[in-house]
């Protein structure tokens, strides 16, 4: 049995004992096993949800909804299927579909436009300066990321925000590895272009701190 899992994991590009443990836990007791699955993957699922939800405030609900859909699917899977399940890309595929459904529903319903999140004011002492700068960079980056086409954004987020290997990115996108790679690199290219465009547009609020942090080492103007 162990051999079988190793082969399976090797096909995924890496051997992950923890993942195998999670599958067995699911087979032994679905609810208790699922609690372990959530614990192991909630950071990745939530981090991706933050980038796929229309508003960051929706990310927690989106992640919860995706986990619930996953649970409902698992209830219908038999042990054999669960033992072969590659949990992380599977969960992220469900998350992506859930996000796309939510976006489609939101576009059908009239509602407030997905405006920029109100920026929380910092009570920044001199010691917190670096942290503030980093927060600003991340917020700005998050905003340009949101402007990427869905497939490029998802590819970039999976590869570079949560560090999935390209093979898993391809799994989630449902495309060959080569296509996933090109989505990732085109997404990054587009990100760079958007960031440069923002810099050229002058010092807008969203570009605070971008130039020094993100385009360091590149020739600006």
């Amino acid at each position: 049995m162990g051999e079988e899992f190793r082969d399976e994991s090797a096909a995924a590009g890496h051997v992950d004992e923890a993942e195998v443990g999670l599958r067995l836990a699911l087979v032994a007791d679905l609810d208790a096993g699922f609690a372990e699955v959530v614990r192991a993957h909630e950071r990745v699922v939530y981090s991706v949800a933050l980038r796929l939800s229309i508003r960051p405030a929706d990310a927690e609900d989106l992640a919860a909804e995706a986990f619930l859909r996953a649970y409902r699917a698992l209830r219908d899977y038999d042990g054999t299927r669960i033992r072969e399940l590659r949990l992380r890309p599977w969960l992220l595929t469900i998350l992506r579909n859930t996000a796309r459904n939510a976006a489609r529903d939101a576009s059908r319903r009239p509602g407030p436009p997905p405006a920029f999140e109100p920026v929380a004011e910092h009570s920044a002492g001199p010691s917190a300066e670096q942290q503030v700068e980093r927060d600003d960079v991340q917020r700005a980056l998050g905003m340009v990321l949101a402007r990427l086409p869905e497939v490029q954004r998802t590819a970039v987020v999976l590869r570079h925000v949560v560090g999935l290997p390209t093979g898993e990115v391809a799994d989630v996108l449902g495309c060959p590895d080569g296509t996933a790679k090109s989505h990732i690199s085109r997404g990054l290219q587009r990100l760079r272009a958007l960031l440069a465009e923002q810099d050229d547009d002058g010092p807008g609020r969203s570009s605070i701190g971008l130039r020094p942090a993100l385009t360091a080492g590149r020739t600006v103007r």
């Binding site: 959530v38 939530y46 933050l50 960079v137 991340q138 980056l141 990054l188």
Partner: peptide, 22 residues
């Protein structure tokens, strides 16, 4: 730098997430 900054966008799940699932 842009890749390093993207990595910084990962965030821990809020404490309430499991309560919304279980």
């Amino acid at each position: 730098p842009i890749v390093a900054a993207l990595g910084g966008l990962a965030a821990p799940a809020p404490a309430g997430l499991t309560g919304k699932v279980f």
